[in-house]
Design a binder for these strands. Sequence first.
DNA 1: TTTTAAACCTGACTTAGATCATGTTTTGGA
DNA 2: TCCAAAACATGATCTAAGTCAGGTTTAAAA
Lengths: 230, 230
Amino acid sequence: MTKSGSLRQIPILSFLKDRDIKALAQDLTEVSYGKGQYIFKEGDPAECFHVIKSGSVKCVKSSPGGKEAILKVLTPGDLFCCEAAVFDGGTHPGCALTMGPVTLMKIRKEAYFKLLKNNPDAALDVIKYLGTRLTEAQETAKTFALERADQRLASLLVKLAKRVGRDILGGLLLDIQLSRQDLADMAGLAVETTIRILSKLTRKGLLGKRGRRLIIRDLKGLETLAGSSA
Amino acid sequence: MTKSGSLRQIPILSFLKDRDIKALAQDLTEVSYGKGQYIFKEGDPAECFHVIKSGSVKCVKSSPGGKEAILKVLTPGDLFCCEAAVFDGGTHPGCALTMGPVTLMKIRKEAYFKLLKNNPDAALDVIKYLGTRLTEAQETAKTFALERADQRLASLLVKLAKRVGRDILGGLLLDIQLSRQDLADMAGLAVETTIRILSKLTRKGLLGKRGRRLIIRDLKGLETLAGSSA
DNA sequence: TTTTAAACCTGACTTAGATCATGTTTTGGA
DNA sequence: TCCAAAACATGATCTAAGTCAGGTTTAAAA
C-alpha cells in the first residue's frame, strides 16, 4: 500500500483533500518496533500523531502498586496519541507499548495542525472522534464502578467482537493476539479470575477457541450477561 | 450579570469575538429546575448545549441493577452535553439531573456549530477541552480498576478540592452540597463504606466539616493516600 | 414547636474476587 | 527435538468491601 493510500483509511484523515493527504505523506516517518517495546511513556512530551500500519499497541496506565490497566488496544488503521497531550502541548498521560512486532507512521503535530486550520470541516471530525472516545471512556468507568467481574468481562468481549470480530464457521473469531493477562488488565481483574470466568463461559457454550484466539459462539448470550447495555 | 457577560466566562466560548457572543446571547433560552429533576435522560436526542448559571448538576449512568454512577458534577460556568451526542446528532449516553435548584442557559446546537465554522481557532479550543475531559475519564477508569476504596475516595476529594475548594481558616472548604450517597456514587463505593472511610480520615485529622460541607485539613496527606498520581 | 422524613453513622455478617501455591500446557529458541 | 520460559489452569485461603439491620442526628415542613 502506498503512503497516501494507507492514510486514506484513517477515519480522522479521511475527510482531507487528495492534495493535503499527499502533502502529509511527505511529512511522515515510518518506524518499526519489536514485541513489548515502549512507543512512549507516561510523562514524555507529546510530539507526534501515530498511525498503526501493522501489529497492535496497548495504551496502559500503571498504579503506584505496580499493577497495570489497559485503557485501549489499538489495531492497524487506528490513529493514537490524539488526546489532550498533543493538542495542548502537554505530556502523555499514559504509556503506549507494542503487543508484538509493530510498524507505525509518525506525523509531526505541526504538520497536522496546519491541515486542520486549512480544513474547517476536518476539525469537526476530530471533535466527533474525541466525543466518541470520551463516551467510550465514561462507559468503561461506569462498568468498572458498577458491574460484576463476569459482566465486565462479557462486555469487554462484546466490545472486542465489534472491533476485531471476524465471522467464521460456528462463531465470531476475535482476530487479535491477547493473553489472559491482557484481558484481565482490560477488564480490571486478576488473571486467575479472568481465566476462571472464561472457563465457565466456555463450559456454558458461549465461548470457544482456535489456537490462542477466542471464538465467540453466542454473542447474544454475552450481551445479555453484560447487561444488554453495551 | 448580562447574558453575554456570563457567556464570556465559559471556557469553550471565551475565544469568541464580541460580535459572536452577542449573536449567541440572542439565541439562548434560560430555564430553571427544582431539586432532583432530570434535564435529560439517557437515550434522549441531544439538541442543545447547556451552560450552568447557578446550582449544580450531576451526570449519571445507571446499571441494570439500579445502582448509579456519577460521572461528573458540574457547577456554574460549566458547559455540558458537549460530547459525541451533540456533535454527531446522536442521543445522550447518560442522564443529567439537578442536585438542587438550578438555572441554566440552553443554546441550540445549530447556532453553536455556525459559530465554530466561522471561528477556525474555536474548534481547536473545543478539541483541547474534549481532550482534557477524555484524559480525566481515563484517569477515573484507571482509578476504579486499580485503586483501593480509600485511595479512590482520597483522589476524588483531591479532585474536588481543585475544582470547588475555597481557602478558609484551617483548611480548604469544599464549597458544594454533596451527600454521602453522592460521594459514594462518584467513587464507585457503597454509602456505608464511604462513611466509614470519611470517619477514619476525620479521626486521622485529614478532614473536618462545616455544616454539611467537608473541609480538607491536610491536602498533602490526601494526595499521598491517593497515590500521589492525581 | 412538633412531627416526619431524609441523611448520617456503626456494628455484625457475608461474599466476590484477590492472593497464594502448585501443577500443566504451549511455544519459541538453541 | 529438546529445553526453558512463558502462558494457562485450578484449588485453597484470605480479605476488602458490600449488604443488612439497627440506631442517631439533622433539617425541613406542618
